[in-house]
């Protein structure tokens, strides 16, 4: 059964290594708070395919707050959508 990973901190080499070890095929990722900066480093056309082939969402409120826009095709949700994702997946793993 797949997990929802809630990523709340900007990427570091350590967090990318740990996420890579734990995130499984079919898992869903939501980037919140400073986690939305993953949009800039892990989801550009030249990014290594670590996470960008998975089902990923960025929290709209946190994107707007930081003035970060995302590329076409990347998905966003608001907090209600975040709740819905947490209900859909049987467990969550928080990363902070």
């Amino acid at each position: 059964m797949n997990s929802l990973h809630i990523i709340a901190k900007a990427p570091t080499s350590a967090s990318i290594a740990e996420l890579s070890a734990i995130v499984d095929e079919g898992d869903v990722l939501i980037f919140i708070e400073d986690g939305i900066y993953f949009a800039r480093t892990e989801f550009s056309p030249s990014s290594a395919p670590r996470f960008n082939h998975l089902e990923c969402y960025f929290l709209e409120e946190d994107l707007a707050a930081r003035g970060i826009d995302i590329l076409e095709g990347m998905q966003t949700v608001d907090t209600r959508g975040f709740v819905a994702l947490s209900a859909r997946l049987p467990r969550s793993v928080s990363w902070y």
Partner: peptide, 26 residues
């Protein structure tokens, strides 16, 4: 909830999450 309200955004996120959760009937 694992962070102080003054030093991280986390408790604000948790609060908004909790409010939405209840509004959605959970």
């Amino acid at each position: 909830i694992n962070a102080a309200p003054q030093s991280s955004q986390a408790s604000k996120s948790a609060l908004r999450f909790a409010e939405s959760l209840l509004q959605m009937g959970h």
